[in-house]
Write a protein that binds this DNA or RNA. Structure first.
Lengths: 213, 213
DNA sequence: CGAGCCCGTTTTGTATACAATTTTCATCGA
DNA sequence: TCGATGAAAATTGTATACAAAACGGGCTCG
């Protein structure tokens, strides 16, 4: 896990998310290698991975750049995620059956304790992972994993207030109801609004931040 | 274009599509390197690319395998493609405007000449590319590019008969109508059925092939 | 002026040797 | 017989040197 390639991957990722590398900036393999303390080989590996996850883009002449992260870009990501994960929820409702519903209910019950942000994040990650697994589509799971950059989820949750946590939990419960009854379209809509709502929370926080400056 | 990495990429891709490497088979870097005539470095690169395109999967211990290509897998791919490209059509109808409709109509008119398979494939690729570009979402375009393996489109089109070509052209025309009028949901449905229909043509051909054996 | 071209510099691509890890399989002991 | 063990073999990971390609700045020529 702490191989050079993983170190390079998480290192570059952090540099981007912390803003040490600005959107649009060119990523030079040698410079990154020196900065992170590994050779260029694992750096190249990490760049390919980050490219698959839309953190990094490559020009036609193979140079790497930090991808844009404007509110429009985040909107695009949340829109795609809402569609794909809505589809996952619909499939989970169709093929998951009572066994899946039971597992989800257990996760939701465990997550219903207090307002600790980290505990909620754990619960949230478990819940969504279970639904995606329940859809039983490897490619869908892979696409979602690439699309959903957990740090964005985290940054969103940090600005959640008590009311928003409760709404999330409420939506999770409704999702379990829909899956339990095998109602694919109900599950799809709940999941879609769940994710779109998360985007708008993020959006408002970003605008508030902008006004402060 | 004819760099070692590209040679490795298209070489391995061909080996998989020709069946020289069977689904589930392990891909050994050194063996591939020798077979293709480049060193392991570009082979590793190619494997990452093929992994992003769902041709290759990796085990938890970093070994690479040829991905499954069962009818169920193809179904999964077409389903995801129908959803994403349906979304692209809806967005294109919303943001593309008359300019996009005009460009599309030109492409369709050019494609309406005879029953040459290759000409149809060119027309088809142009048409879909224009719509995806018209949606104006880089990440969506990237995801679709990774998901849609042209060889499958080709293999599907090879079994198209005259009637099916005509239906495709008809659907393309209807799509242009929908986009011209800015009707996102109409565009989405036409695109979705267009792609689902293509899957079932492929499916029937695959079953016919199976019965022959 | 400005478009195009040349050449030094920067950056990425490739091969290769060696290191680390994983797998395989033979052996041992209960 | 079964499972554990450990060493050999197979496979992937990493560093590094050199090759190739792309970029940039200054030059010429119209």
């Amino acid at each position: 896990m702490s191989s050079a390639a993983d170190k390079a991957y998480s290192g570059i990722r952090s540099l981007i998310l912390d803003g040490a590398l600005a959107p649009g900036e060119q990523l030079k393999e040698e410079e990154l290698a020196e900065r992170i303390g590994v050779s260029r080989t694992p750096i190249r590996d990490a760049l390919r991975r980050l490219e698959a996850e839309f953190f990094v883009t490559r020009s036609d002449s193979q140079r790497s750049f930090v991808a844009d992260q404007s509110v429009e870009d985040i909107d695009e990501i949340f829109t795609l995620r809402a569609m794909l994960e809505g589809h996952a929820a619909a499939r989970a409702a169709t093929v998951g059956g009572p066994a899946l519903a039971a597992r989800l209910r257990e996760i939701v019950d465990k997550g219903d304790n207090g307002s600790d942000v980290d505990a909620f994040l754990d619960h949230n990650a478990d819940f969504h992972a279970e639904i995606i697994a329940g859809a039983g589509s490897d490619r869908l799971a892979t696409m979602l994993a690439r699309l959903v950059s957990q740090p964005i989820v985290h940054r969103t949750a940090r600005v959640y207030d008590k009311d928003q946590f409760e709404r999330s939990l409420f939506e999770h419960r409704e999702l379990v109801d829909a899956i339990e009854r095998g109602d694919a379209e109900w599950a799809r809509s709940v999941m879609t609004s769940h994710i779109r709502r998360a985007f708008h929370v993020f959006e408002e926080a970003a605008q508030a931040l902008k006004r402060e400056k």
